[in-house]
């Protein structure tokens, strides 16, 4: 085995004459290791139960869950990608614009007569390029991501609006039918975007937990100087995370457009806070270094349930925002308290 036997022998000898060291025996219990996830899950259950008690006639019928299932994936897809960026200790505020910009590529490629699959790939590629630009400006030029992605948000949106001159594009061409069926079709009442969300979550879980890149995402977000001293490329890791985020935004843009069969130039407006709230509600730390795909999934479900639930529960329209905010604040506080308790 690749270890220094000499040191080993000395270590053993030392253990003989010295007394044994502090005992790290207790494996961190499931509670301790997954305390945060359990906290988030608990909050999700509490919210659902509260809704059911408050408005049983709404929340015990399937309708609401259909509304929930068709809209939640639109921002949850991006929240999953954003999780990686936040774990590296950065943030991306430009993704709503990236959704729209990627659709420009899609629409132009398709109208130019390209195969619809190629148009789709070009859209994803546009997202990757936008992410590459963000990532490079953050990690190589060294501009804080909070600042620069506000800039690129305006830039990407501006380019998109200029190209489209504010026009929308209907996505009703017969040639688009197969994509629609694959991306947003309904099978046994389940919208395809739900399936894609779970597949994407599985893929990102694998990337984060079972690849070298994923390991570096955690290390870079935890302590980028330590990571760099040990030979981890901070710039490459951060740029990679931004590119994944860009591709998720592009994918969400295509899905959201096909869901309504129309490309609105304002695509993405209104998705910013839902997405970010899902990530943070999911327990990913704003300071970087910790976070999980599972947490974001639950966080997204909570936000989605709120969106669908508040409206359906018939709360006065003027009060929806206040209730929404109240539940988020309450959730985060509850989650923190539960986590702290469980970890003790």
């Amino acid at each position: 085995m690749s270890i220094d036997e000499t040191f080993l022998a000395q270590g053993a000898a030392e253990a003989d004459d010295g007394h044994p060291k502090a005992d790290h025996s207790r494996a961190p219990s499931i509670w301790r290791r997954s305390g945060l996830q359990i906290g988030i899950l608990a909050v999700g259950v509490v919210i659902l139960v509260t809704f059911i008690i408050a408005a049983p006639d709404v929340f015990l019928r399937a309708n609401i869950y259909q509304a929930f299932a068709s809209t939640t994936p639109l921002f949850l897809i991006m929240a999953l990608g954003l999780t990686l960026v936040v774990i590296t200790g950065e943030i991306d505020l430009s993704f709503p614009s990236v959704m729209a910009l990627s659709m420009v590529s899609f629409v132009y490629a398709f109208q130019a007569g390209m195969f619809v699959g190629v148009a789709f790939l070009l859209a994803i590629l546009t997202g990757a390029l936008a992410g590459f630009i963000n990532g490079t400006l953050v990690s190589r030029v060294g501009i804080p991501s909070l600042v620069i992605t506000i800039g690129t948000a305006f830039l990407f949106r501006g380019i998109e609006l200029a190209i489209m001159s504010g026009r929308g594009v209907p996505l009703t061409d017969a040639g688009l039918a197969p994509v629609r069926a694959v991306l947003v079709g309904r099978y046994f009442g389940v919208p395809m975007q739900v399936v894609w969300t779970f597949l994407l979550a599985a893929l990102l879980w694998f990337i984060l937990n079972r690849t070298k890149f994923g390991a570096h995402v955690y290390l870079v977000g935890d302590n980028s100087i330590s990571a760099k001293l040990m030979g981890v490329s901070v710039a490459r890791t951060k740029t990679g995370a931004f590119m994944i985020m860009g591709m998720c935004a592009a994918f969400a843009g295509v899905v959201a457009s096909f869901e309504v069969s129309y490309f609105w130039p304002t695509l993405g407006d209104g998705s910013l806070l839902n997405t970010i709230a899902s990530v943070f509600l999911g327990g990913t730390s704003v300071f970087g270094g910790t976070g999980s795909v599972f947490g974001t999934l639950i966080g997204g479900f909570i936000i989605g349930a709120l969106n669908a639930g508040i409206v359906s529960a018939g709360i006065n329209a003027f009060w929806t925002q206040a209730v929404f905010g109240l539940v988020i604040v309450f959730s985060v506080v509850l989650q923190t308290l539960i986590t702290r308790r469980v970890r003790k």
């Binding site: 270590g11 253990a15 044994p20 060291k21 005992d23 790290h24 025996s25 961190p28 290791r33």
Partner: peptide, 13 residues
């Protein structure tokens, strides 16, 4: 073996 934590006892997590 190296750091002398009493064996079985150690937790890398």
């Amino acid at each position: 073996e190296q750091m002398g934590f009493t064996s079985t006892a150690v937790h890398p997590d």
